[in-house]
């Protein structure tokens, strides 16, 4: 039984969050297709060597978010929600923006300064992309 997920002891976040995030990524990039059956809680726990209760919690949260659906007695499948991947990215963006806001405050940046820094970053990203494409 191989799930390809990898959790890290040195990652400060709780294990269930790491599992949730990796499953979301798996789905976002299309490794796990919509409607596809995913490993059972016990299977995933055994292959990750993580306690059953931790995986169960990750699945419950994913279910609440509508990322996966659990059929009673049958196991879990990836939800057939079309907006899934964009919503996943949306969540990730919100998380990163929170982080940016916190760092901005630590550095004593004003709202406008922060906004212009974000603008600069988007410009840099676009430049790099065109460079890659011309190459």
């Amino acid at each position: 039984m191989h799930s390809d997920l990898l959790i890290s002891q040195s990652d400060g976040r709780p294990l269930y969050l790491q599992i949730m995030e990796q499953i979301k990524q798996r789905i976002a990039v299309g490794d796990w297709a919509r409607g596809q059956e995913i490993p059972s809680i016990r299977q995933l726990a055994v292959s990750l060597q993580v306690s059953v209760i931790t995986v169960k919690r990750a699945y419950l949260e994913l279910e609440r978010e509508g990322v996966i659906a659990t059929q009673h007695g049958k196991g879990s499948i990836v939800a057939s929600d079309p907006a899934l991947s964009s919503r996943l990215y949306d969540e990730e963006l919100a998380e990163h923006l929170d982080h940016v806001a916190r760092l901005g405050e630590l550095l004593g940046l004003s709202k406008n300064e922060l906004a212009s820094r974000l603008h600069e970053a988007t410009v840099r990203f676009a430049e790099r992309r065109t460079m890659k494409e011309t190459l």
Binding site: Q9, L15, R42, Q43, A45, V46, Q49, V50, S51, V52
Partner: peptide, 25 residues
Amino acid sequence: MAVLADEERTILFSSHNTQDVEQIS
């Protein structure tokens, strides 16, 4: 962990290594 793939089976283990316990308990 492989033992626990069978849900009828139970494990009690003592340790002073909290990392082992944290991961699989």
